[in-house]
Amino acid sequence: MVNYLIAMLVTVGIYAVLALGLNVTWGMAGIANLGLAGFMAVGAYTTALVTKTFGFSIAAGMCLAVFASAALGILVSVGTLRLRGDYLAIVTLGFAEIVRLIASNETWLTNGTDGIAGISGPWRGQLSPVQFNWVYLGVTAALLAVSLLVCQLLARAPYGRVLRAIRDDETLVSVAGKSTFRFKLQAMAIGAGIMGLGGAMYAHYISYISPDVFRSLISLYIFLALTVGGTGNNYGALFGSLVLIALLEGSRFVFATVPAINAVQLAAAREMLIGLGLLLVLRFAPEGLIPERPKIFTRAATDITPRN
């Protein structure tokens, strides 16, 4: 039981890192980026290939994963960032599918749909499964803390203000003399890098990756986590991931106590529950459970008298 809870906390941590990356692009800069699964895949495959084929250390693999995803983030952005809203969303969704199809079909590089098994984990093999779980929880917590720190510094810096301004009114920001394209490009790179880290964390934990992992389901889950937690708020990304896993996993136990429904109905009910949860949050707390700005703060803002 303890082992299961640790494993789920690790999953929460990985989801939270992914949600933080999404928060930089979507939450802060307002870029509708549905390509999360693609960037995650690039991160996971990069570290898996360099640690398995070239014998790199896990830390080096993870660093390379961040750089590879960030670089791809820039590459994708150059051609697409001038698109707005829905159009960009479609293009990034397509990008994620392209990554998955390349992973499926370029067998010489990615081993195709067989996937890559036996990816190393920190001290895996020398530790018992339970010990490894604990160690990885520590690794996850540390990496999550670093990601959170970076995102918080970014959000509080003038830089973060520019990103939020772009999100709220891009034209206004360009009138103010900022190159919105450059800022958005950088936000994509940072966000994609963090998503790549999330992918690398997943690969070293589960030890197996295949193209099927990176279907749009995971993008959807992370979007859900961020929306429920509070788009634009880094703590919202964290909390949303916790709520999502609690819903996904908790529903197994709750539904199991209902005798009238069978396993097939239960599986469908779980999916409905997730959708229902999202609807309820959007209806009653449209800014998420931890809104970007607390209500009390907005009220206070109107009282501020200009400083001399």
């Binding site: 303890v2 996937g115 589960i206 992992v213 389901l217 996904l248 599986a267």
Partner: peptide
């Protein structure tokens, strides 16, 4: 018998397997 859904997805499948094995 305890039945879980793997959602035909390795990520979801691993979480479900964890529950079957550890809980």
């Amino acid at each position: 018998l305890i039945s879980e859904d793997d959602q035909t997805n390795p990520e979801a499948g691993v979480r479900a397997a964890r529950k079957l094995i550890d809980v």
